[in-house]
Write a protein that binds this DNA or RNA. Structure first.
Lengths: 204, 204
DNA sequence: TGTACATCAGTGAACGCGCGTTCACTGATGTAC
DNA sequence: TGTACATCAGTGAACGCGCGTTCACTGATGTAC
């Protein structure tokens, strides 16, 4: 993507991509506005034409991340049909796939320290993602007798927590080597959990 | 803890405590060696009498954290006896209690970006903590028929992942308000999971 | 099609700041005699 | 008990660095006539 003269053309998006790359390589701490500008082939001051500052850039990266994330999980859910169970499991796999394929986004969203309520746009994107998961959980939990059914928001919070935990503890290069492939770990974990809810037969 | 003259007396530990306090307040990014020194009432240069540098200080904080963590979980497991199930559940509660009561340590251990393999001492402490969890999982899983039993390390990885996920997503002030108290979320989550393993009766 | 001009994206120099780290030093402590 | 001296914990000044941000500017673009 060579620079074509004085005007960049699409600097805003180029800066976001530079930020994502740096965050991916060096963690949320390693990201600096100046280096992102340099990576995009531009003076640090140019950044201020497009963003209010450093945090604003990260927030926008996170927003785009939540958008993609929600789309991806929605798509996984839709194409995982017709069985609610199959759709739900596809959504779980999509979670991990997203974290793997878009680590920069994932880190911006969950590890950068920026609050999800920083801007209305960011909050909206995050809520949409959450809603997709809750809907998947809600539809699946209709197969449980009403009196034993946990609230869908609790159900989805459990799944989200386990997915996030697997990503953070076992799907990163740092530290503890995973005893099992993260994908397997998450799939078996969700499987056991769903069995506990009576959604999978005990001997399967 | 007023400074008593030229010599501090216990600067090494005072620096670690200052670091923990700063990490707790401002996150792993907010911690600086200079500010830790200032908090301990000492010149930045004095830090180098006790630590090789900034990272070394965090690593030592993490090491102490893993030590406390392992002790706490071991204690919870022991006093949670005689039933393996009760002991296991006590261990889960101890996990969350540790994260709540010692956020500086927890952050140093899991969010500071330092590798657990940075020093042999740190790795040893981390492994001890992991071993406690695995032992708890192992003993509990003996109640499962051998052919259906998942490996203890997988079992404990699931629990660890869910616990960590709950801490990160729902037990921090930042961002998403928890729909349920984290303690309840984790307890119900682990409960459903254990039911899935056949360790709790279905109608309980 | 050609010219004048408004718009605005990016420049480059400068700023003040706090960082981690080094160094020769100095003051307190504790031990040998 | 008293003195000399080795040890070493902490000082304070200095360093080079890269950061985020500001500012007056300049060069490219696109639109009106």
């Amino acid at each position: 993507m060579p620079k074509r003269g004085y005007h960049h053309g699409n600097l805003r998006q180029a800066l976001i991509e530079a930020a994502l790359k740096l965050i991916e390589e060096k963690g949320p701490t390693g990201f600096t506005l100046s280096e992102a500008a340099k990576t995009a082939g531009v003076t640090p001051a140019a950044v201020y034409r497009h963003f209010a500052g450093r945090e604003d850039l990260i927030a926008e990266a996170a927003r785009q991340g939540f958008d993609m994330f929600a789309d991806l999980m929605q798509y996984a859910y839709d194409t995982g049909q017709p069985s609610a169970l199959a759709a739900f499991e596809a959504t779980g796999r999509a979670y991990l796939a997203f974290a793997r394929r878009h680590p920069g986004h994932y880190i911006s969203m969950f590890e950068s320290g920026i609050s999800v309520n920083r801007t209305p746009e960011l909050a909206a994107a995050a809520n949409r993602a959450k809603a997709v998961l809750e809907r998947a959980a809600g539809e699946l939990s209709e197969h449980i007798p009403a009196e034993k059914r946990p609230p869908a928001s609790m159900f989805s919070a459990h799944i989200w927590a386990m997915s996030h935990g697997v990503v953070e503890l076992y799907a990163r290069n740092t530290g503890t080597a995973s005893p099992f492939p993260p994908e397997d770990l998450l799939e078996t974990g969700i499987g056991i959990y769903l069995r506990g809810l009576g959604l999978i037969e005990a001997d399967k």
